[in-house]
Amino acid sequence: MACKVKGGDTSKLLPVISFLLGSTSTAAFVFLLAILDVNWRLSALASWNNGAQPALSDEMKAMAELTEVLRNASMDDKTVIMTSINRAYAAPGSLMDLFLESFRLGEDTEPLLKHVLIVAMDPGALERCLSVHRHCYLLRRPEGAIDYSDEKHFMTKDYLDMMWGRNLFQQTILQLGFNFLFTDIDIMWFRNPLRHIAITSDIAIANDYYNGDPESLRNRPNGGFLYVRAANRTVEFYRRWREARRWFPPGSNEQFILERTQAELSRAVGVRMQFLDTAHCGGFCQLSRDMGRVCTLHANCCTGLANKVHDLTNVLRDWRNYTAAPPEARRRGGFRWTKPGKCIR
């Protein structure tokens, strides 16, 4: 179940909405989405225009658009595969092209593209997305907000703002009643990773380093690959996750705080976490040795857009060589990834 407005009376939100619509903060808009009743969908929005209520604002229309985009992209169980891009990542030959190409090269992954929603951080990214993909959504920001169109370097202020904003947007998706599998744009998809997510898991997350136990809260998670099931407890998990920022030094990112609070948060709200084996959902930090098992490969433990593009291009080349080999040779194994020389030195 998704969270609901207390008492189901959306008219009580009007003073809050009026305040938020005057705000210049990106977070204010996302918070507006987060507090709305999940059942207050397009039909309810339309009823506001019958003369008794004010006309729909641009922000409310954007929420309706988001709900419709999610509905169009979702699987039968209301799960959406979601990633985000800016203009730098969307440029021809950059990470978005590599990401989409991996689905086309993977084993039975191309059909999953119809469930991939690409969230554009700027109009330039949206334009490029619409030229190559079916489901694209522009995350609108008020005039004067931070420009996310250029590369944001790891752990800079703009980077941290973007990561925490992404975290809040993910909570919004849950409150709209949709499960999501968030994947960074620098993750290559070669097989369907959903097969390795337990039906009993509320949250399933990849790891930079996996200790061998999928239930161990001592794993080192990476929020770049994250499945979350829509429920009141997962929404509360997200709320407390952000609230925990106050206990850590300024400039801490969401992944750092999750690693240090995941045991406490999951126990407090009753969330069952699953930590995914890097043999299936791995990356450059702990590179999978068996191409016959790998589902996704992340350019983690790596900074710099050019470095990621270079090394992931080699990853796709290695995968092409593997899939082009005769079945007998593939069964024997022995295929290895090219060392990510730009990322790992």
Rank of each mutant, 00 (worst) to 15 (best):
N219V: 05
V294H: 06
A279H: 07
A263D: 15
R233A: 13
T278R: 06
R245L: 06
Y238M: 14
G270Q: 10
R289C: 08
Y227D: 01
S252K: 04
F248R: 15
N300T: 03
A230W: 00
L297W: 09
G304E: 06
N219P: 04
A230L: 04
F284L: 01
R272M: 14
M273E: 00
N300D: 15
L276A: 01
R293Y: 02
A279T: 09
E254F: 00
E259N: 11
T261Y: 02
R293V: 08
Q255G: 06
L297G: 07
L217D: 09
H298C: 05
V235C: 08
P250C: 06
G283F: 11
V271K: 03
Q274F: 10
M273W: 02
Q262P: 01
N253G: 13
C281R: 01
S288Y: 00
E259A: 12
E254M: 14
Y227G: 06
F237M: 05
N232C: 15
C301Y: 13
R272C: 04
E254A: 13
R233K: 15
L276S: 03
S288C: 05
F225H: 09
L276H: 03
N219Y: 02
I257K: 11
A299Y: 07
L258H: 13
V228R: 02
V294T: 09
N222E: 10
F284W: 06
L258W: 07
T261A: 07
R229D: 14
I257N: 11
L258I: 05
W241Q: 04
W247K: 10
G224H: 08
N253P: 03
E243F: 08
S266Q: 05
W241I: 11
F275W: 04
V228F: 01
T234G: 05
G270T: 05
S252M: 06
R245G: 09
C295P: 03
T296P: 00
R289P: 08
E259R: 12
F284C: 02
V235L: 06
T296V: 11
R242L: 10
I257C: 11
H298L: 09
V269D: 00
Y238C: 07
R246I: 12
R272N: 14
A263G: 12
S216G: 13
R246G: 07
R246K: 13
L265C: 05
R289S: 04
V294Q: 11
Y227R: 01
R239T: 15
C295V: 04
I257S: 08
V294M: 06
R245C: 04
R229Y: 14
L258G: 08
D290V: 03
C295K: 10
G282C: 10
E243L: 13
F237S: 00
I257T: 12
R246C: 08
W241H: 12
R260I: 00
T261Q: 08
E264W: 09
C281E: 09
G304I: 12
W247C: 07
T296Y: 00
A244V: 04
W241V: 03
A244H: 05
T296C: 10
G292N: 15
R293W: 08
R220T: 12
E259W: 13
V271Y: 01
T278A: 02
